[in-house]
Simulated scan of single mutants.
Amino acid sequence: MARTADPARRVELIDAITAALAETGLATFSLRTLAAALGRSTRVLTHHFADKDALLAAVLTRLDEQQHAALAATPGWDDPAVGIGTIVADSWRRHLSPAELPRTRLIHEIEGLAAAGRLTGQVPAFVSGRARFVAAALEVRGLGPEEARTKATLLNNAYSGLQADHLTTGESARTEAALAELCALADSWT
């Protein structure tokens, strides 16, 4: 008789998988190589995930949860007196911090593979969910739902593009000056 998967152990496993993928990337990812990197058997992975796609879907869901929790924990997130630009700048510092950088790179890799048509599944929901989440912060600051979602889409994609530029070129001064402009623009919306 098969054992029922323990939800807490599954979350721990997903976090370990995410950390491993953040270090190695997705290029050489297989259940076998991932299990070896974790010091586990592939059986442990298949006990919790039906296949590679299910595992990636779980990683995306967990990354989404972690990103939303980190944003919501940013001082001023739900305070309309705090400009959205402040939240964006705080997010930038967190995403590019040494502790968070591998996960930030993994997210960019996932988005790039999805844009190239090499990943299916939850990536579109991952991106659109981020827009809905940021739109909620803009609504708290007085924007209507439709305008908030449009502005959140613009903000998220400009932010992501600047971050990709920064990670690709290493040009901190230029990308951070552009980020300051983006923050000022976002603050002007509210």
Rank of each mutant, 00 (worst) to 15 (best):
T4R: 12
A5K: 06
P7M: 02
A8Q: 09
R10I: 11
R10P: 06
V11H: 07
E12H: 08
I14Q: 00
I17A: 07
T18N: 10
L21I: 09
T24N: 15
A27N: 07
T28K: 13
S30K: 05
R32A: 14
L34F: 14
A35H: 00
A35P: 07
V44A: 14
T46C: 13
H47I: 04
H47Q: 11
H48F: 11
F49G: 13
K52R: 02
D53W: 08
A54M: 08
L55T: 09
A58G: 07
V59M: 08
V59E: 10
T61N: 12
T61H: 06
R62A: 01
Q66I: 09
Q66L: 11
A69L: 11
L71S: 04
P75R: 01
D79W: 00
V82R: 00
V88G: 06
A89Q: 13
W92T: 02
W92V: 08
R93A: 02
R93H: 11
L101P: 03
L101H: 10
R103M: 02
R105C: 00
R105W: 03
I107A: 13
H108K: 03
E111F: 01
A115P: 02
A115C: 03
R118H: 13
R118N: 09
Q122V: 03
P124S: 07
F126W: 10
V127S: 00
R130N: 08
A131I: 14
R132W: 01
F133W: 07
V140M: 01
G142L: 04
G144Q: 03
T150V: 08
T150H: 09
A152T: 07
L154H: 08
N156K: 12
N156Q: 11
Y159R: 04
Y159M: 02
Y159V: 00
S160E: 10
A164N: 06
T169C: 10
S172C: 12
A173L: 12
A178M: 14
L182C: 04
L185V: 14
T190S: 15
